[in-house]
Design a binder for these strands. Structure first.
Lengths: 305, 305
DNA sequence: CTGAAAGCGCTTACAG
DNA sequence: CTGAAAGCGCTTACAG
């Protein structure tokens, strides 16, 4: 293994100089010729600085961790979200770890060891209470994704998304607009979407037509010329029940089926990832300042409708 | 930050003893009472050993990295693959890093620094030659996923998968079986699937009916009672062209559409992830031994057909 | 069985 | 402007 001492010897300087040059410290005056010699030596030897050496000295690992439930359905995420996190991490010169936590009786590696400077937590249903406690107690900087907390979270603005989608349909001339979905469950977004739909109708003086699919058949929506639904699953159920209307679907990624006519409202997964890292870096730098949560807008797809 | 010295002081032992106890070193004789005292002190203080301290001492980072192209279409992967990697890493008590590399003029953080003991590389088209060179030159242990190399790779057995799917249709009594796909391109799997299909037909003395979709219309397949295709995209094109047959689709994950009748052959993404980590750990332990590549079988879904 | 010491690779004051 | 020294948190021989 090549170490900074090898580079120093080859370049005829001290280890300190190697460190200063390779870390681009321009506040210290070092002749360009010396700098070049160091860089050449490093390249020639294939020197790769050992992250851990720096970490142990600086007290920062230079990594952040993306944390998921080991029950995958509790921590759904899209490639777009992961990409947002990777990009955000790269931007801050951080490595990104990915870990899954057992939901109970857990003592996961990522919490047991100090291996990351902060955590991005992604639970789309209730996170295990033990997790939040443990994080608070160990004072680990953390940002929650897809969770609408007062502080330290980023989430899609489902309320505004549903409201905008409904208004768009109204603007198109639809007067009888339905909503197909599940009964609002533990996750805030289910209630928010329904509320957004209702807000738009109320603002326009229209009547609501809601089919909660555990209880009602989509047939309740007969006569509607447009229907708002969440996820392709709901769309599929409505379709199979014989509903043939203009659909508006809130979903994470563009998708297609063969016959249906619909507009998609995309969840801002990439932006969520980016934003989560931004907030986390703030949090790492000042761990005691609560950060107001961010709601990010959904975008209609295709963007212009 | 709590360090091992704090635990040592609280437990009334030396730092060495703390290390031995917490790392479960049973080869050294330490009275159970002392062990318990150390564990209690660690818990009470919320001690989380600093990974980097150990890393700098042991020379191992305790992490492996999952490496992707920054052009996402060149490094497609499913959640199942990522889960396989996460599980595999956890099994070996490793952290998992995820990184994307620019394709050209690159000097990515993950290669520039020594932050992982080995790499899992996932390129579904040609990997940049500079990458393989760099890895070889820096002697970084690496395993390739979805790449059929003689050594150091794991990949789905597309040939056998296509062959088995075709034989299954033959066993069902189909006599005119088509193939819909793209012309074999740079990735080995495209040729392998076509070859597997052809092998099965030849073994059964049947004639081939191949539609390469850049050149031919799926209508070439008219009269076929079963069609083998790769990915839902191909299926969709065939469907839209009016083809109504039994389809066999090779794909990474279960998927559904509204009307079509098809059998899916699932790529073994989870197993690929697990296997890749196993091979990588071998490679890390003996970097100079080439590891014969592994081809993993596809599975029909539903499993019994 | 336990503790003091050395050392992993690195960076940062501090002398010169 | 550069080098010798100290120190980050940890683990591993080595004495006792």
């Amino acid at each position: 293994m090549v170490k900074s001492e090898d580079v120093a010897r080859k370049a005829g300087v001290s280890r300190a100089t190697v460190s200063l040059v390779l870390n681009g410290r321009t506040d210290i005056q070092i002749p360009e010729a010396t700098r070049q010699r160091v860089r050449d030596a490093a390249r020639a030897l294939g020197y790769r600085p050992h992250r851990s050496g720096r970490a142990v000295r600086s007290g920062k690992t230079g990594s952040v961790a993306f944390v998921l439930s080991s029950v995958s359905v509790r921590s759904l995420f899209t490639p777009l979200l992961l990409d947002g996190l990777i990009e955000g991490a790269a931007r801050h010169d951080q490595h990104l770890l990915v870990a899954r936590l057992g939901d109970e009786s857990f003592d996961p590696k990522i919490l047991r060891e100090f291996a990351a400077d902060g955590l991005i937590l992604n639970y789309n249903s209730e996170a295990p209470p033990a997790l939040a406690e443990r994080i608070a107690q160990a004072k680990i900087p953390a940002i929650w994704i897809n969770d609408r907390r007062a502080f330290d979270s980023v989430y899609p603005d489902d309320f505004e998304g549903a409201r905008a989608a409904t208004h768009a349909r109204i603007a198109e001339g639809h007067a009888r607009i339905g909503y197909a979905g599940w009964s609002p469950g533990p996750h805030y977004s289910m209630a928010d979407r329904l509320d957004g739909y209702r807000a738009a109708l109320e603002e326009s003086g229209l009547e609501e037509h809601v089919a909660l699919l555990e209880r009602e058949s989509p047939v309740v929506l007969a006569g509607c010329t447009a229907v708002l639904c969440y996820s392709p699953d709901v769309l599929k159920i409505a379709w199979q029940a014989g509903l043939r209307t203009k659909f508006s679907v809130i979903h994470a990624s563009p998708f297609s089926t063969l016959e249906q006519d619909f507009t998609t409202y995309l969840l801002p997964d990439h932006a969520l990832g980016r934003a989560a890292i931004e907030l986390l870096m703030q949090k790492i730098n000042s761990p005691d300042t609560p950060i107001p949560s961010h709601a990010l807008p959904l975008t209609p797809s295709p963007p212009k409708e």
